[in-house]
Simulated scan of single mutants.
Amino acid sequence: MHLSNAPTSDCTLASFTTVDLSFRWKAMKNLEVFGSVQNLFDKVAPLDPLTYGGMSYNPMDASGAIGRYFKVGLKYQFK
């Protein structure tokens, strides 16, 4: 029996590595600055178009799928 969505032995993806950075800085007694950079070098995730969209596959779950992004925030405690 042949299934059209069965895995094949020739389905391989190259490995890739991403670099993430984060920081936290106590700028003043009650003020903290924090942030992060995800996928610092904007590495593109490998994609096999034959298996893209396969059962239970969500491309947004993989590192590199959305590229580089930044987060920055402030935390102030009133006392």
Rank of each mutant, 00 (worst) to 15 (best):
L74H: 04
M28Q: 06
I66Q: 13
S36E: 03
F16D: 03
K79W: 07
E32S: 09
A14E: 09
K71V: 11
S22I: 01
L47N: 11
K75E: 12
P7D: 12
S4C: 02
S56C: 09
D20P: 07
L21N: 03
N39D: 03
A45M: 11
V33F: 00
L13E: 09
A14T: 14
P49G: 06
V19A: 09
W25Q: 07
A14M: 09
V33K: 01
A27G: 05
F16C: 04
R24P: 00
T17K: 00
L74R: 04
N5R: 15
T17F: 09
A27P: 00
A14R: 15
Y69Q: 13
P7M: 07
V33R: 00
D42I: 02
L74F: 13
S22E: 02
K75S: 15
T12Q: 14
R68W: 05
L13A: 07
D42A: 01
L47R: 14
Q38E: 05
F16R: 04
L31A: 05
P59N: 06
K26P: 00
Y57T: 02
A62H: 05
S9T: 14
Q38V: 09
D42V: 03
P7S: 12
C11A: 11
K26A: 06
I66Y: 15
V72H: 04
N30E: 02
A65D: 12
N39Y: 04
I66E: 02
S36Y: 04
L13K: 02
D42S: 02
K29R: 15
F16I: 03
A14Q: 15
A62R: 07
F16V: 01
K75T: 11
K71I: 08
M28A: 15
